[in-house]
Design a protein around this nucleic acid. Structure first.
Length: 127
DNA sequence: CGCTTGACCGGAA
DNA sequence: ATTCCGGCCAAGC
């Protein structure tokens, strides 16, 4: 055995995408959250996965299919990672009912709870 | 085949 | 509160 980090990176990516598809509109998830929800591959040390899982998720999202709501995945700071198209991402999230405060989202209110949480408990609480 | 870059995170200065 | 740094994978050039 050499040192295969991920036997099938593509398979890992599909897990990320499949998980991202479960995030309902009006909710957001963080890269680290998705990494935490995905079981650590057997050939990867749990410690390494904990450290770099979020980055792999980001790499996966960089090449996500069009049917994945990529806009709902943000960083742990509750902000949109600086990249071309970040403004578009914010527009899409605001269109879904996400409120931004100084380029920041209140994760306590909008963060996805995980698989099974189909709908937002209190979506409309404007004003 | 080697070097550079990146949609991250957590802790430290 | 902001800025820097280490971690060490995958993809592009």
């Amino acid at each position: 055995m050499a040192n295969p980090t991920l036997p099938n990176p593509q398979q890992f990516y599909e897990q990320v995408w499949q998980l991202a598809r479960q995030v309902p509109a009006g909710r957001v998830a963080t890269y680290g959250q998705l990494a935490q929800l995905i079981p650590c591959p057997a050939d990867v040390a749990p410690d390494d996965y904990h450290a770099f899982g979020a980055r792999w998720v980001g790499t996966a999202m960089a090449a996500c299919p069009s049917d994945v709501p990529w806009q709902r995945i943000i960083n742990s700071q509750g902000k949109i990672s600086p990249r071309p198209g970040a403004d578009t991402q914010r527009q899409l999230l605001e269109n879904e009912g996400i409120l931004f405060v100084k380029d920041r989202v209140d994760l306590k209110a909008y963060q996805w709870r995980g698989p099974g949480e189909a709908e937002p408990p209190r979506q409309a609480r404007l004003f």
